[in-house]
Design a protein around this nucleic acid. Sequence first.
DNA 1: CCAGTAAGTTCATATACTGAACTCAGTCAT
DNA 2: ATGACTGAGTTCAGTATATGAACTTACTGG
Lengths: 153, 153
Amino acid sequence: MRWSEIDAIPCPVAQAMAVIGDAWTTLILRDAIRGATKFDEFQASTRASRAILSDRLSHLVEHGVFERVQYEAHPPRYEYRLTARGDALRPVLTVMADWAETHLPHKVHNWGRRHKDCGHRFRPVVSCSECGEPIKRGSITYDTPPVLKRERA
Amino acid sequence: MRWSEIDAIPCPVAQAMAVIGDAWTTLILRDAIRGATKFDEFQASTRASRAILSDRLSHLVEHGVFERVQYEAHPPRYEYRLTARGDALRPVLTVMADWAETHLPHKVHNWGRRHKDCGHRFRPVVSCSECGEPIKRGSITYDTPPVLKRERA
DNA sequence: CCAGTAAGTTCATATACTGAACTCAGTCAT
DNA sequence: ATGACTGAGTTCAGTATATGAACTTACTGG
């Protein structure tokens, strides 16, 4: 099966990957979160080829992660802004960055992430929306559990 | 620049992508978390081609996300087990799945994730490790902020 | 008219991916 | 001794995707 066909799988991780799982996409999102909006900004910061960048941005617009907005009429100029849906990916990138900072410390520059509200340097902890407790390993259950699917005979 | 060259960027997101950003890798991790260990289990559940699966598993072993363990001597048989480093990716997949469940509800089957400790269905919330409060949008600062880098002249 | 800008698009070439078949190191039944 | 089987990959012809450089488009300003 082709990677481009995974959008046919109704699993959340697969559906997320169908939107943001292509090469370069996560770096585009990283830069959008940092404030990039212009095509050449994304090209300069990601170093992706122009054709691929164009393709990825179109895909993200089609999936409602970016909106392509005209910011100048003469000449017509466009920029790419994160939508609410796109913005909601911040936690994904925060947790992913934390994983790299923790497990690949010799390979990453630590920017010194700090929580404004309490003023401390911090790590993102994934907690329960209901009781507020950090989610421990093994404390997640599923009402209708995803099982490993065998290919049908 | 080539996608395979992003491991030269000392940014956490880029380094994470260098380890887990290739096509199919996130689905492999999803299935490992669900209990898959055998090559054919991964092949059946991800539907990736055998050559690509082999390549991805090797890459993950090289980067310390899996360990390749002999589970039978005669004949020699191997399985792939998540390491602590690999297991630490659970929050990434949990948050990513939550994003898809929230923003692509018509495309995903919701397995009904529940927190064992409090018994509720829940959403993963990213909180501060120091004060325990959920991280609000805009409440993260960086001591040495990542800036959008221009390509050097 | 020309140089410049920003946002893509095109194309020759290179690389990666796919599906099916194959190989390897065994085991087991006949 | 042989053939069928298992699990874990490897190989290969064909196909798809990606890359870098150049190009195109729609302007503006001198």
